[in-house]
């Protein structure tokens, strides 16, 4: 029996045909049934076979998560649905670009923080930086929060992408 009370956060990795409307189908499935999308990334991953991978982070009760996986799997262009959260161990990464505008001590401090987060400096002017930071979502969020406290910021995040550890490869069946 599936739990219907506790909300969980899951990262799903979906391999689909890269055809017109496929993203709309996936997004429509969530919006039409009132499910939550916390982050979504999509890009073609196999040009020859025209496959795209959609990584989506969603939250809901185990019953809802199960329903989402079944509905994704039911879509005609879907080849596979992996629930990275319940599967074998997996890695997740997110990339963010953070522009910070500040001067003086705060400018120096922002560089120091960036260094400790292993962020790269992509652009700098006399009163600004653009940093690139990569990591799991909580690290990215922590970096952004620190930057927020040091100056005005603009943020672009890619959303989460992930895959299982080990030698298992998600292939087209």
């Amino acid at each position: 029996m599936l739990d219907t009370t506790q909300t969980e956060r899951h990262t799903l990795s979906v391999l689909v045909d890269n055809e017109p409307g496929v993203l709309a189908r996936v997004v429509g499935l969530f919006s039409g049934r009132g499910y939550n999308i916390e982050s979504l990334t999509v890009s073609e991953v196999d040009t020859a076979r025209q496959l795209s991978r959609i990584s989506v982070v969603t939250s809901g009760t185990p019953m809802v998560i199960e329903q989402i996986k079944q509905l994704l799997d039911k879509l005609v262009p879907t080849h596979s649905v992996q629930d990275l959260t319940v599967g074998p161990a997996h890695v997740e990464r997110e990339l963010a670009l953070v522009k910070i505008v500040c001067v003086g001590d705060k400018r120096v401090e922002s560089l120091r923080v960036a260094d400790s987060f292993r962020a790269r400096t992509l652009d700098s002017s006399l009163n600004s930086f653009v940093f690139e930071v990569t990591g799991n979502s909580s690290k990215v969020t922590a970096f952004i929060e620190l930057m927020n406290s040091l100056g005005d910021t603009e943020v672009a995040r890619t959303g989460v992408c992930g895959m299982t550890r080990g030698n298992n490869i998600d292939l087209v069946g």
Binding site: M1, T4, M63, E66, Q67, Q70, L71, D73
Partner: peptide
Amino acid sequence: DPSSINKVVNVD
């Protein structure tokens, strides 16, 4: 339809 199972009623 696998998505019909456990959609509204949890079954054994």
